[in-house]
Amino acid sequence: MLSMEAIAGRRKSQEPVERVMFSVKALYGLSRESVRMPLSKKQSIDSGQICVTIDPEASGDGNIGVIDYTERADCGGKLKVRYAVQAVFPGLYDLVRSGSHDPTLFYPVRIVATDECTLTADRSGWHALGCLDFLPGSVWAGATGG
């Protein structure tokens, strides 16, 4: 029979939580390495470090992720996250300066990043593997990268 006590008991009982959803409110990132970007069959340029910050123009509803703490032998869990960022390529400074090119290459671009991450065994951090989709409107549109 359902009683007030039974309902209160249900509320108090704690189910083990293995999955936690979260939203991304702020983000700042700097890549460790440069990316080679092809310009022709023979020539390419270095992007330099890529600097990303959360995209203030994007809908916050899209910045969301889930951590799965299910025990695994190889890691402390998995994490999937999708977020919108604006990125700049400060490494293009030399290219633009040397050729007196239009500085619009420095302008930020909008990107949606999707990462699949592996939590470290002690759950103090994670290793991310993701892909970037450049949004329409800029010369980078349609480009993808990981």
Binding site: L39, S40, Q43, L95, V96, G99, S100, H101, D102, T104, L105, V139
Partner: peptide, 10 residues
Amino acid sequence: AGVGSVLREY
């Protein structure tokens, strides 16, 4: 198009 001079050089 902004990127024009870079494309021309390359």
